[in-house]
Amino acid sequence: MTYSIAILGASGYTGAELIRLIAGHAQLKIEALGAFSKAGQPIKQVFPHLRHLDLPVLMQIDEIDFANIDLCFCALPHKTSQEVISKLPNDLKIIDLSADFRLSDPDDYKKWYGNDHAAKDLQKEAVYGLTEFYRDQIATARLVAGTGCNAATGQFMLRPLIQSAAIDLDDIILDLKCAVSGAGRSLKENLLHAELSEGYHAYAVGGTHRHLGEFDQEFSKIAGRSVHVQFTPHLIPANRGILATAYVKGDPTKIHDVLVSAYASEPFVEVLPLGDTPQTRDTRGSNFCHIGVVADRLPGRTIIVGALDNLTKGSSGQALQNANVMLGIEETEGLMMVPFFP
């Protein structure tokens, strides 16, 4: 069976990544591509690398006929997404890639994103989109909220350890490096090549990064008590990839065993042999997440390193994985591509 798909926000990085992934999917067909400023343009004009694909012309979202659309990906900016989704048909399956439905408490959304939530009724039915941990809920959901790419990386590394009480919950330090595509495609002065290349820098230092809202929500839910990680992100002059390093208190062998067991049947999360660490180049362009565990020189402390592609496993690949679950398709369909090399 073939399902009809719409992508809103198709002119951004995550929109382009969705098109790339769906082009290799046996059961999905793109019927509509929505955009704002680039509406009316053929996709080859916006993304020349997609010119070989037979795709509809970009159009204004309010001009799309959703009557025959089975599932809609919404890859729009924060705040815009909730306003658009609230006007879509009530029976349409939706996967939102923005932050608008990730935080279950609208007050938390206002705290981290600075705006009142404009679709509180929809928020009540949204399911958090970390597939490996919400698979059953996603299967019956109408609206799925994709995670932040940084939040996904940290959760793959730490969720099983919090669940099993393998680490000290009051001593978690997460240091994360993210490629520039994680900041989106809109023009920003600090992302100009001359100002970004040949160096990297910390940002949102001191606990102000928005993905901390997801860490607080999810880790505290698992633990049944308040859990607050110390988190500092860094922007690196690369197009794709996240490399996160967590410093925790706990036995490295036990931590490794817990992670191996947690992901033994997961097709997209691979735990490396104890002592090995991953690299972003090994997951680039793929839906895989690699995790490594190393014993620290200080007794009782462990270093955990995670790597994934922020545009794929951290966003659009995760969204397609969720779509497969929602539509009853084999979860790995369209996602088993080999990482880019070199």
Score class of each variant (00 low, 15 high):
Val229Glu: 09
Leu212Val: 00
Ile222Ala: 09
Val248Phe: 04
Asn239Arg: 15
Asp216Thr: 03
Arg225Trp: 03
Ile255Asp: 06
Gly213His: 03
Glu218Ser: 00
Leu243His: 13
Ser220Thr: 13
His228Cys: 04
Phe215Cys: 06
Phe231His: 09
Val248Ser: 02
Gly224His: 05
Ala246Arg: 01
Arg225Gly: 08
Gln217Thr: 06
Ala244Ser: 14
Arg225Ser: 13
Lys221Val: 02
Phe215Lys: 06
Asn239Ala: 15
Tyr247Cys: 03
Lys249Gly: 06
His234Ile: 13
Pro252Tyr: 08
Arg240Ile: 13
Gly224Gln: 07
Lys249Ile: 10
Arg240Gln: 15
Leu243Gly: 03
Tyr247Gln: 12
Lys249Thr: 14
Ser261Thr: 14
Gly250His: 03
Pro233Tyr: 09
Leu243Trp: 10
Ala223Trp: 06
Ile222Thr: 10
Lys221Gln: 06
Gly213Glu: 05
Asp216Phe: 08
Lys221Asp: 12
Phe231Tyr: 15
Phe215Ser: 05
Ala246Lys: 01
Ser261Glu: 15
Thr232Ser: 13
Ile242Asn: 10
Asp257Val: 00
Ser261Gly: 07
Gly213Tyr: 05
Leu243Asn: 11
Val258Glu: 08
Phe231Asp: 01
Pro252Thr: 07
Phe219Met: 12
Gly224Leu: 12
His234Arg: 14
Phe219Cys: 12
Ser226Glu: 09
Lys254Asp: 01
Asn239Leu: 15
Val227Met: 10
Ile236Phe: 11
Ala223Lys: 07
Asp216Ser: 03
Glu218Trp: 00
Asp257Lys: 07
Asp257Leu: 09
Pro237Val: 01
Ala223Cys: 07
Glu218Cys: 00
Ala244Glu: 04
Asp216Glu: 14
Thr232Cys: 12
Gln217Trp: 01
Ile242Glu: 08
Asn239Cys: 15
Gly224Pro: 08
Gly241Cys: 04
Tyr247Asp: 06
Val229His: 00
Thr253Trp: 09
Arg225Asn: 07
Val248His: 02
Val229Lys: 06
Leu212Thr: 00
Thr232Asn: 11
Gly224Cys: 11
